[in-house]
């Protein structure tokens, strides 16, 4: 299979040699790849693509193929970002949006976790809440923003509410699914060893559902960020979304892009944090 016999072709003694003791050179087919390359491979290819896309983008912008009012280049966006930082307004906006996110998303986790665990564990809790959860989940919650502004005003609380409503369901539904998908054998074993409900919860249900819970949290982050931006686009006193709305109204396209970058990078950062936690909890999973 992986062993080949090679007889050197131009060796006059080859035949004679192979007659007595077969001259065998074993060539093993070990995949040859320098370890430094393997380790940095994904970073290399990933950043390569990013740099390439940015370069093409900048080229298009510099060549004025599209007017900068429509599509500013990366450098123009960077300049707008620097100006935004320099005039200091970024900090009030970041604080407002950040606070909304922390309150809304944090509250969603605090409510969704226990509720999802209960729904997964107790059939009747699930039966009771399932219709409401399904209805609320199917509803485009962004459409609630005008209503939430009437209820909570244009301060941060209307945004907290929309973020909460946007991110709670993915977390809730995934947590419930995580409990539902627990291996029946784990539960049987725990019961057989005389485990109480509380012990089962702590030693089987919670750790067993962690991968699902973290998936829910990751999806929730995306929804939460949509909530931040859209909520602020409609009405707000401060925030990245409000800044984007204002900049857009004044045709400061580069600044709109800068806001978009801030929101996107925040999303990448948060998802990265969750992935870190995920890796910490899944040390037992064999690498595929």
């Amino acid at each position: 299979m992986s062993v080949e016999t090679v007889i050197p072709p131009n060796d006059p003694t080859a035949k004679a040699k192979s007659a007595e003791v077969p001259q065998v050179r074993v060539r093993r087919r070990i995949p040859a790849q320098p370890p430094w390359f393997a380790r940095w491979e994904s970073l290399l290819f990933g950043s390569g693509t990013v740099i390439f896309v940015l370069a093409v983008w900048q080229a298009i912008a510099s060549a004025r193929i599209v007017p900068p009012l429509f599509l500013p280049g990366p450098f123009a966006i960077w300049e707008a970002f620097v100006a935004y930082v320099a005039d200091g307004s970024i900090w009030t906006d970041l604080a407002a949006s950040g606070l909304e996110l922390i309150y809304g998303y944090g509250l969603a986790i605090i409510v969704a976790l226990p509720l999802g665990l209960l729904m997964g564990w107790y059939r009747r809790v699930n039966m009771s809440l399932d219709p409401i959860v399904n209805f609320m989940n199917a509803m485009p919650r962004i459409a609630l923003v005008p209503l939430l502004i009437i209820w909570f005003g244009i301060g941060i609380w209307s945004k907290v509410a929309v973020i909460f409503l946007s991110s709670i369901f993915p977390i809730l539904i995934n947590t419930q699914a995580g409990i539902r998908n627990l291996d029946a054998g784990w539960i049987k074993a725990a019961r057989s060893f005389g485990g109480s409900d509380l012990q089962l919860f702590r030693t089987v249900a919670l750790p067993g559902a962690v991968p699902f819970i973290l998936t829910g949290m990751r999806i929730g982050v995306g929804h939460a960020l949509i909530g931040v931006v859209v909520g602020e686009l409609v009405a707000a006193r401060a925030g990245i979304g409000l800044m984007m709305a204002t900049a857009g109204a004044g045709f400061q396209t580069a600044k709109v892009f800068a806001g978009l970058m801030i929101v996107s990078l925040a999303g990448v950062f948060l998802v990265g944090m969750i992935s870190l936690v995920e890796r910490r909890f899944q040390a037992w999973r064999p690498p595929n």
Binding site: D183, G185, A189, S192, T203, P207
Partner: peptide, 13 residues
């Protein structure tokens, strides 16, 4: 009493 199960049912974590 203690049971040895058909499926090992070990906690993978």
């Amino acid at each position: 009493r203690a049971m040895v199960f058909q499926q090992a049912s070990l906690l993978p974590w």
